[in-house]
Design a protein around this nucleic acid. Structure first.
Length: 477
RNA sequence: CGGGAUGUAGCCUAGGGGCUAAGGCGCCUGGUUUGGGACCAGGAGAUCGGAGGUUCGAAUCCUCUCAUCCCGACCA
């Protein structure tokens, strides 16, 4: 058959690309590094957006929209920020057939334009906190792109908040990190580690960066969301001050946080198999597909019966019905498995006779027969079971591939072989971090909460000094 | 950005200076089928990734270029 998927064991990268293309999630565009998100991929994004957006609203945030184009000088206002982003900016130099007086950059992120506006909107502590999110596209000129994981243009949300105190801003940073963790676990069925990034890995312009990190099936880490405590860096760069209740003038404290269409890549690499996409039921574009199985002599009756089954399902679930008689049932089974539909309902003459349907799970292939009356409840129950099973399976996989390693030689061997997450005592020095990266390609993904206490009494790798942190090393995307 | 590989119909592949570019899958029409990727017959679909060059003649040789994949460098 034409739609062959490269097995994961043969070539993990090819497998990933095959899934994206053949599950019709995205396609290459004529422009290097850009991609078209196809309806099935975009539907995944829409379901993600809805869930995340609801969580933002529930935590007091509102949406707004800031422009795509930013004066080049804005990016240069914050020293670290300009250094971090300069190499990957796309710059507009001409408009209306004339060279622009000042070039405009296409936003790689919107801190600068947003803070230039916050300066106008914030005068008093009564204007704070300001909790704004935007859903937008951004552009970063990446040298090596991969569908969903790293593309030149991508879709994301970026929250930008302003607070009266450092404490409030820090709380916000952690609150949103927790929103991301909950979203990843509850909707994507993707377990994540959370924690602080090292200075080497943090956002350009942040004081502290936190992230959620997931383990893909090749045991590499994927940073799936970030939340930054920006301190007063941008407030100072854009001179955003407010008058306190006591009458003094102070710079505003800031956070920013984002997740992107990269989450779709994370979802694919967390759950899918050699038969195609496996989508968690809560986000799956189609949750259940009904496939009638008929012979020419009973076609009309079976179709009538199957349509009745579909009718029972479609109000309650994202349901499809595939009665096309150009393809055999077997072909359809494979096709819908490729597309990642969590549950298949097979309806044939035997079911019609018994007034039953057959339900088949995408994650396990397990089949069961239920009465047609109970089908909707059974579908609901199975979708929940699949959601839970996917999470548990991914969590088990991560645990199986997470090891505490105290010895540097052992750490090197670990990353030469299968790799995974290594919990390692670290002396806290950038030199040690750089040496490990140089020699093993693994980086510190996060410093988990409370790691300092657990590091007590341990000896750091390489230097043999007392460990200050117990950190997670992994090779990353 | 450096090294490697690959671009021939929607997809996969054959053809490596010479006649009308070949096959499989998919697609269209008709018929038979249908509980794990069905079958028969007929049909449509290609300026051989793009540009330039060499030649009487280029899918084939040369140069440049674009894209994708792999390995590295880079990557909040």
């Amino acid at each position: 058959m034409a739609e062959r998927i490269t097995p994961r064991s043969e070539n993990y990268s090819d497998w990933y690309v095959d899934i994206v293309i053949q599950a019709k999630l995205a396609d290459y565009s004529p422009v290097k590094g850009c991609m078209v998100i196809r309806p099935r991929g975009y539907a995944l994004w829409e379901h993600m957006q809805r869930a995340i957006d609801d969580m933002f609203k529930a935590t007091g945030h509102v949406n707004a929209y800031f422009p795509l184009l930013i004066p080049q000088s804005f990016i240069q206002r914050e020293a670290e920020h300009v250094e971090g982003f300069a190499p990957e900016l796309a710059v507009v130099t001409h408009g209306g057939g004339e060279e622009l007086e000042e070039p405009l950059v296409i936003r790689p992120t919107s801190e600068t334009i947003i803070w230039s506006m916050y300066k106008k909107w914030i005068q008093s502590y009564r204007d704070l906190p300001l909790l704004i999110n935007q859903w937008a596209n951004v552009m970063r000129w990446e040298k090596r792109t991969r569908l969903f994981l790293r593309t030149t243009e991508f879709l994301w949300q970026e929250g930008h908040t302003a607070h009266a105190t450092a404490r409030e801003a820090r709380e916000e940073t952690l609150r949103m990190l927790d929103v991301y963790r909950r979203f990843a676990e509850e909707y994507m069925a993707m377990p994540v580690l959370t924690g602080l990034k090292t200075d080497a890995e943090k956002f350009a312009g942040a004081i502290e960066t936190y992230s959620i990190e997931a383990m893909m099936q090749d045991r590499r880490a994927l940073q799936a969301g970030t939340s930054h405590f920006l301190g007063q860096n941008f407030a100072k760069a854009f001179d955003v001050t407010f008058q306190t209740a006591e009458g003094s003038l102070d710079h505003v404290w800031a956070t920013s946080w984002g997740v992107s269409t990269r989450l779709i890549g994370a979802l694919i690499m967390t759950h899918s198999d050699d038969k195609g996409l496996v989508a968690p039921p809560r986000l799956a574009p189609t949750q259940v597909v009904t496939i009638p199985i008929f012979k020419s002599k009973n076609k009309a009756e079976v179709l009538r019966y199957a349509e009745g089954v579909h009718e029972r399902l479609r109000g309650r679930f994202r349901a499809e019905y595939d009665s096309d008689d150009a393809n055999s049932p077997g072909w359809k089974f494979s096709e819908w498995e490729m597309l990642g539909v969590p549950l298949r309902v097979e309806v044939g003459p035997r079911d019609m006779e018994n007034n039953t349907v057959v339900l088949v799970r995408r994650d396990s292939g397990e089949k069961q027969s239920v009465g047609v009356e109970e089908a909707p409840d059974a579908v609901a129950r199975l979708l929940d079971d699949i959601q839970t099973a996917l999470f548990e399976r991914a969590k088990h996989f991560r645990e199986q591939n997470t090891h505490a390693i105290d010895d540097y030689e052992e750490l090197k061997r670990f990353f030469e072989n299968d790799g995974g997450f290594a919990i390692v005592p670290w002396d806290g020095s950038p030199e040690t971090e750089a040496q490990v990266k140089e020699e093993t390609k693994a980086t510190i993904r996060v410093l988990p909460e409370g790691n300092e206490k657990r590091a007590a009494g341990k000896t750091a790798i390489i230097t043999g000094k007392p460990a200050r942190h117990l950190v997670v090393f992994a090779k990353a995307y």
